[in-house]
Amino acid sequence: MIQHLISTFITYLLILLGVAFFTLLERKALGYFQIRKGPNKLGIIGIPQPLADALKLFVKEWVTPTSSNYLPFALTPSVMLILALSMWQLFPSFMLSSHLTLGVLLFLCISSLAVYTTLMAGWASNSKYALLGAIRAMAQTISYEVTMTLIIMFFLFLSMQMDIVTIRLMNTSTWASALFLPLSAMWLAVILAETNRAPFDFAEGESELVSGFNIEYGGAGFAFLFMAEYSNILMMSLMTSCLLTSTLIMSVPVAVIFLWARATLPRYRYDLLMAMAWKSFLPLSLSILMALSSLLFLL
């Protein structure tokens, strides 16, 4: 029990540090992509910049809108961060304090609960901009979660396990890797849309919704929402490396793809995004899953 608590605490601490320095990597990468300098004044080449940003956010005054629903408004950022960190119990290391045989099911359950926190943040703010941003983000997340579940089921059919460690070790076979290639592009688009990242960041339409569901949050509340978003990005990168490759180190290039997409691609149109989910990705993933299940049944 003590070992499990210590392992969990160390994991959460390292993830929060990873989130902090991933924001530094993003700002540096965007600077180089746009032929300018990123943070470089604080310390050595700007390395302490995330710590300065965290200090600035956490010492700011907590401002609550007078018409907001105070209790859900204050609790939602903490709940969102707790859900984002709890997914890291699935981290497939060789020093696991507990082995989750139904880890993929837990991942799907927690990622589904994240939709409620997005809606709660927008509704509790009692602002039309926040509510509209929350509804758009919720519709987008639910739509792409269906395709994400179907793609994950493809890998579950091949491994006949719901354990992330087993799925990752199964990926060493070359025939499995050949089968994964057609799904890779679809999976990358799905995780970009699932995490509300560019070019699918429709919760934050600057021209019509300002900053979306988190517009009324500042200080520590905004920091918690920010950390939850970037923790989900790193978790999706880890899941990609487990499903599509056999080495965890591949999660680093996948995380860089999130930054590359933000720097390169213009924002998609919302109706085209929803049409892509329901008219393209859903029929294609269902067809692949049906073909695989029929093939497995015959063999």
Rank of each mutant, 00 (worst) to 15 (best):
L296N: 04
A178E: 07
S285P: 00
S111V: 10
V59K: 15
I233M: 15
K37C: 07
Y270E: 11
Y144L: 06
M162R: 03
N126P: 12
A228R: 04
L102K: 04
L150M: 04
F157T: 07
A263R: 09
S184G: 08
C109R: 11
M239Q: 05
Y70A: 04
I164H: 00
T149P: 00
R136W: 04
N171D: 02
L119N: 09
S251E: 11
A130D: 15
T141C: 05
A255S: 15
F154D: 00
S173L: 07
L179C: 02
G38A: 07
Y270F: 15
R27M: 05
I44R: 14
L272V: 08
A228M: 09
V190L: 11
T149G: 15
S7N: 14
Y270T: 07
M170V: 02
L292S: 01
F58W: 14
I6F: 13
L24I: 05
T247H: 14
V146Y: 03
S241Q: 02
S251Y: 08
L13A: 13
I47P: 04
L81G: 02
L273I: 07
S211K: 14
L286P: 02
E204L: 06
C242G: 03
L243P: 02
F226C: 10
L181P: 03
P92R: 02
S86G: 04
A114P: 06
M162S: 14
L5A: 12
A130W: 06
M80Y: 10
G31A: 08
L24N: 08
I191M: 12
L295Y: 03
F22H: 10
T264D: 12
L85S: 00
R269E: 13
M148E: 00
M160P: 00
D201M: 07
K56H: 13
S251N: 13
K28H: 09
S112E: 13
T264Q: 14
L282M: 15
L57F: 12
D163R: 00
F58H: 11
L295S: 04
I167N: 01
F180Q: 09
S285A: 13
S78K: 01
A134N: 04
H4G: 12
L156Y: 01
L108D: 09
I257C: 13
S231K: 08
E194P: 05
G205T: 08
F258D: 13
E145P: 01
M170K: 05
L90R: 00
F22L: 09
L234Q: 01
T118I: 15
S211G: 06
Q3Y: 11
Y32M: 11
F213W: 13
C109P: 06
Y70G: 02
L108R: 06
S111E: 13
L298W: 05
A114V: 08
M274T: 12
T240M: 05
V59P: 05
K128R: 14
G38L: 06
T117Y: 10
S143K: 02
S293D: 01
L150D: 01
A255D: 10
S112C: 08
M235T: 04
L299G: 10
L272P: 01
S251H: 07
G18R: 05
S159R: 01
L17R: 08
C242W: 01
A29S: 15
F281D: 01
A52F: 09
L105C: 07
L16W: 11
L113P: 12
F180M: 10
W88L: 03
A291G: 03
A74Y: 02
I152C: 03
G212F: 14
H4Y: 11
T240A: 15
R168H: 06
L265F: 15
